[in-house]
Design a protein around this nucleic acid. Structure first.
Lengths: 219, 219
DNA sequence: TATAATTATTAGGGTATCCTAAATTTATTA
DNA sequence: TAATAAATTTAGGATACCCTAATAATTATA
């Protein structure tokens, strides 16, 4: 498996390719490559049994492809824990480092690293680390724009992207914080969020709020 | 810089390409690729300023190429320290892991790792880690077959290769041990070594002993 | 020094990954 | 539903890296 192919599988997983067909354009956008290259690569991934591809429709991961993607994501998140907790990296800056390391990490190494880190449950951005808890986390978390008004929720995960992380940090929205969506204006693409502990009120774009994952507080 | 090109630079450094012209064949052997591929790659490395190449003679690193190679070797050795001391890898098994990781390690990451490891001087096989001490180490160490008979020496480094490491371990020759070469038979490619602390006498092939680096004990 | 052996290069290919431009299919909308 | 817009694929190329077979240069040896 080349790092390139691994990237395709991981992106596919992140774009929901476990359950839905992901259009080529989304993959091309995410990876910053041209659509014809995606078509070509998909044919190659199909041949190797990682992906099911329907021309003009999009691609889905096979069970084998899904497993592989989860293992990669686990490696990525384990490195992030190491980089932040032991090496002192800023949470906003670990993504590109982990992105490289994940492709150079054997299963033996990942297992030893996990032991060394004392079996962390989550990466610094709140993503589940054990492969068996990744899908469970997806089920129990909501994208912030999906939350009903006036329902208290807790921020459990932020998509791992430097700019997004900086944006949310600037708006004082961090993992573990409890918030309430107080109103929404779909036409203006805005939502108003009340931050419970700081008592501040924040307005953010719904498009961006999509990258904030929350859990309903069961109190 | 691709991992492939990085490997060429590193091998060149290890084969003495800092001071001498390294023939293509040696590089081809070490990397397990065909000689024409080496010729082709050398032309590409010349174009990028990493190497000086004399057709039919061999290649030397430019100062820029030497610096790059040393940085790679530093990364490799830092990872080895981490893998052995923190993750519990066997010394004989870390090479392939570090070989992959070194290509995915930014300077920032290497620096933070070095700090975390508390600025180790040597890798588990005795190789110097700070880039400025690598050449000094080369100067003060000898290949075991170069040592005069009856001169007490200390094993300071073993070339990082699983089979070699296993061979020396089986013969009870480890880093830090003090030994004396008691005799040599060039025609039989054999040398007899006396192990000072264990008082055992060991016979090893001179060809292989070349991969043991020692320092004269200045007592 | 001529010949043989060794080493290196050239010639001609192959795969992986990427691209742009043109053609095709699908989706949208008037 | 016909026309337009958007997404996808096909066609044709490029570069990086790797190969084998054939040729050329160098080195070793008789």
């Amino acid at each position: 498996m080349s790092p390139t192919k691994e990237d395709y599988l991981k992106i596919l997983f992140e774009l929901g390719g476990r359950t839905e067909q992901v259009p080529n354009k989304e993959i091309a956008n995410r990876l910053g490559i041209s659509p014809p290259t995606v078509t070509e690569m998909m044919n190659s991934l199909v041949k190797a049994g990682w992906v099911v591809y329907t021309p003009y429709k999009g691609s889905k991961l096979t069970p084998k492809g899904t497993e592989y993607a989860k293992k990669l994501i686990r490696k990525h998140r384990l490195w992030e824990v190491f980089l932040v907790k032991h090496l002192g990296f800023d949470i906003n800056k670990v993504h590109p480092e982990a992105e490289l390391l994940e492709h150079s990490t054997s299963t033996v190494l990942a297992d030893k690293l996990e032991t060394y880190l004392n079996f962390p449950e989550y990466c610094p951005h709140g993503g589940a680390i054990p492969v068996d808890s990744m899908e469970a986390q997806e089920v129990k978390t909501l994208h912030l724009p999906e939350v009903e008004v006036d329902t208290p929720v807790k921020i459990s995960r932020i998509v791992d992207d430097e700019k997004l992380l900086q944006y949310f940090r600037n708006h004082d929205l961090n993992i573990g914080d409890s918030i309430i969506v107080t109103s929404r204006d779909i036409s203006l693409d805005l939502m108003t969020v009340h931050h419970i502990s700081s008592k501040e009120t924040i307005q953010i774009s719904q498009t961006i709020a999509q990258y904030l994952f929350v859990e309903i507080i069961s109190s």
